[in-house]
Amino acid sequence: MARAGLTAERVTAAGAELADEVGLDRVTMSQVARRLGVKDASLYAHVRGLEDLRGRIALLAADEKTIRIAEATSGLAGKDALVAYANAWREYALTCPGRYTATQAPIRIDPELAAKAPGPRRAIELTYGMLRGYGLAEPDLTDAVRLLRSTFHGFVALEAAGGFAHERSPQRSWIRALDALHTLLEHWPPSREGDSA
């Protein structure tokens, strides 16, 4: 029988908090149970196991990150939207590292839960909408999305790991990287024959 007050949402939130503290790959069901003050077995009335919990954390994080990006970019276009989008992404990655990892890791997510989750769909809509402001259409939209994701993720992963040892501040490099991305998006190279595939 499920413990009163314990829900899948509470279990997921506890798992997400732990992921930020110790890293997503180090979260265990026992740790989550201890955090909630219950026995391990109580959790299984709400989540099917560690893989299911990680999938739920990924969906929670995708929703949180998307809300932050949507709020930051509301009413903006062009470079202003790009900078606000990127800054919201970076801030989430650095302040919620375990949750952020869940949004980037190859985690198996229950298809029923994924179908009901607004975060991933809204993230795609926001990203493509921002890039359409640069006049991009497919297949360039997909290529530009991959470029942005690679740049943002690569930068924050290196920053979080202490990979920028040079005396120049990461913040200054971040600003210049966004300047460069904006210039590239404004002058996106024309598609070549065969690029539609």
Rank of each mutant, 00 (worst) to 15 (best):
E9C: 01
E9M: 07
R10I: 09
V11S: 04
A13K: 00
E17S: 10
E21K: 06
E21D: 12
V22G: 00
G23N: 11
R26S: 13
T28S: 15
T28L: 05
T28M: 08
V32S: 08
K39G: 15
A41I: 07
L43T: 10
Y44K: 03
A45F: 13
L50W: 01
E51Q: 12
D52G: 08
R54L: 02
R54D: 00
G55L: 03
L60C: 05
L60Y: 03
A61D: 00
A62F: 06
K65W: 10
K65V: 10
A70M: 10
E71M: 12
S74T: 10
L76S: 12
L76A: 15
A77W: 06
G78Q: 06
L82W: 06
A84L: 06
N87L: 08
W89L: 03
W89V: 10
R90P: 03
E91S: 14
Y92I: 04
Y92H: 14
A93W: 00
P97K: 08
G98H: 02
R99T: 00
Y100V: 04
A105K: 14
I109F: 11
D110K: 07
D110Y: 03
E112R: 09
A114Q: 07
A114E: 15
A114V: 05
A123I: 00
L126C: 09
L126Q: 09
T127L: 14
L131N: 09
R132S: 04
R132I: 09
R132D: 07
G133P: 03
G135L: 10
G135I: 07
L136G: 09
L136Q: 11
L136S: 10
E138N: 13
E138I: 08
E138V: 02
P139C: 07
P139W: 07
D140C: 09
L141P: 11
T142A: 15
A144F: 13
A144Q: 06
V145G: 08
L147C: 08
L147W: 04
L148P: 00
S150E: 13
T151G: 03
F152G: 00
A157N: 05
E159I: 02
A161I: 08
G163N: 02
A165V: 12
H166L: 13
H166E: 15
S173V: 09
R176C: 02
A177P: 08
A177D: 05
D179E: 14
W188C: 04
S191F: 01
S191K: 13
G194N: 12
D195H: 14
S196W: 15
